[in-house]
């Protein structure tokens, strides 16, 4: 069962043809890794999945991206789409407010005021992001007081607090040290049971460790995609071969 279906997707930043005829199915409740050298379009593709590219001026998109069979670019309620498709960014970006308010933010944005409901959602989300035990005694503390890895897990908690179906992760561990990275990867092992995860990563080892499917990008093109083991063990394309062997990139 495919969660997303990307069909003949082209994306232009002004004159720059950033994504060229992408066709990619993204299966439900699996981890799909997008890999490739810098500037190859993998983050751009990720941001088409929750329409974050809408924020950039002069972006033109052709083709279509469907979520559960519905074209998301025909969708009028972009906020609703983004509730279903959560996102975690490269650099942890908690809001300048308390830990509690960070997690409650998405609920408050939907007009939910009932304190009991929010309390429960906050606790569940923090437990889900494996952060509850570390912060339960200081929920009112400022989010900036947390370490980088904790901040990133807070951002994951913030995302899962509103019950998304998909979590997009844009190099979620590239700003973190190895131990914090390990914790996030452990967390992803849990999250994969409930969510469809799409992750952009620069680390081929990370892609190997955590993903079921891998898609390799090269200068705006999707070179190859398939089972992660197959991509790494018997790549079909010369460029994939060179990239996964670490010859360049």
């Amino acid at each position: 069962m495919n969660k997303f279906d990307v069909k003949d997707l082209n994306l232009y930043y002004g004159e720059n043809h950033a994504l060229k005829g992408i066709n990619l199915p993204i299966p439900e409740r699996k981890v799909t890794a997008l890999i490739g050298p810098s500037g190859c379009g993998k983050s751009t593709l990720l941001r088409t999945l929750n329409r974050m590219n809408d924020l950039i001026e002069n972006v033109k998109i052709t083709g279509n991206v469907s979520l559960d069979g519905n074209d998301i670019y025909q969708e009028r309620n972009v906020g609703g789409l983004r509730m279903k498709v959560g996102m975690v960014f490269q650099k942890p970006n908690p809001f300048p407010m308390s830990i509690y308010e960070n997690v409650a933010y998405g609920l408050r944005a939907q007009g939910i005021r009932d304190k009991k409901v929010i309390d429960e959602a906050v606790e569940n989300a923090l437990r889900g992001a494996a952060l509850w035990d570390e912060v339960s005694d200081r929920l009112d503390g400022h989010a900036f007081g947390l370490s980088g890895g904790q901040q990133q897990r807070l951002c994951i908690a913030r995302a899962i607090a509103i019950q998304p179906e998909v979590i997009l992760m844009d190099e979620p561990t590239s700003a973190l040290d190895p131990i914090a990275t390990h914790k996030i990867e452990e967390l992803m092992e849990e999250l994969r049971k409930d969510y469809t995860i799409v992750i952009v990563t620069h680390s081929m080892n990370q892609a190997k460790r955590i993903s079921d499917k891998t898609a390799v990008f090269w200068m705006g093109e999707l070179v190859e995609h398939g089972e992660t083991a197959q991509i790494f063990n018997s790549p079909q394309d010369e460029r994939t071969k060179g990239y996964v062997n670490g010859d360049f990139g």
Binding site: N50, G79, R82, G86, F89, N93, M97, Y105, G106, A109
Partner: peptide, 27 residues
């Protein structure tokens, strides 16, 4: 105000107005 605040808020499905009043103005 860091762009990441705005992106973080919109990515949670918050409306642009909610983002302005709850994140951008306080920051």
């Amino acid at each position: 105000v860091p762009r990441s605040y705005k992106e973080g808020s919109l990515a949670l499905g918050a409306s642009p107005m909610f983002t302005i009043f709850k994140v951008l103005l306080p920051a």
